[in-house]
């Protein structure tokens, strides 16, 4: 195995293991902490793909903001009961079965992947020459301006929704 393969193998295996650890913990706080480690590993994969900007965002937004939010909710809800309740319902076997079928299906397809030629104009060299953030910023404000603006409307709807569902006085 070459160094990049080893690097990828480590992160791939760790991501799978950490995901399993996350959903099997009895204590929700433990689950969230495993998720933190999981997010860091996903950021590692982004670096592997030369997307250091995305890796930084992954750490700042997911590991920082979203995770703290999770912990806040757990603390507010005081989930003592959660620890005594059985974690998985009876039909977890169905889920595992579906997962295995899907995995076999995916692996059989992935084996058929050929290496395609480099597509698009953003080759590794092109991105390196300009810098990651510069490239993302340029594309975001030119070609992807419309999606960027639609995303802002989605955020607006989310804020309105939070206010309507949580705050609005209904007699």
């Amino acid at each position: 195995m070459t160094a990049p393969q080893l690097f990828f193998a480590y992160f791939a295996v760790m991501i799978t293991v950490l995901s399993l650890l996350m959903i099997t913990r009895r204590n929700p706080v433990h689950g969230v902490l495993w998720m933190l480690v999981l997010f860091v590993h996903i950021a590692g994969l982004y670096i592997f793909l030369n997307a250091e900007f995305l890796a930084a965002i992954q750490i700042i937004v997911y590991a920082g903001a979203i995770l703290v939010l999770f912990l806040f909710v757990i603390m507010l809800l005081n989930l003592k009961k959660e620890e005594t309740v059985k974690k998985f319902q009876k039909h977890w076997l169905v889920g595992v079965g579906t997962g295995i079928i899907f995995a076999v299906f995916s692996v059989s397809i992935v084996r058929k992947i050929e290496v395609f030629p480099q597509l698009g104009k953003y080759t590794i060299e092109a991105v390196k020459a300009e810098g990651n953030i510069m490239t993302v910023g340029k594309v975001l404000y030119t070609k992807y301006l419309l999606p960027f603006e639609i995303a802002s409307v989605i955020l607006l709807v989310a804020i309105i929704g939070a206010v309507v569902l949580a705050k609005k006085r209904i007699e």
Partner: peptide, 26 residues
């Protein structure tokens, strides 16, 4: 005409309808 715009339009529609479905929150 682009999958990204399509996805964002879908999310805008979906998010609004989720809220509307739960608007009678009592």
């Amino acid at each position: 005409a682009d999958l990204i715009v399509l996805y964002l339009g879908l999310e805008l529609m979906a998010l609004s309808t989720y809220i509307l479905a739960g608007i009678t929150r009592k």
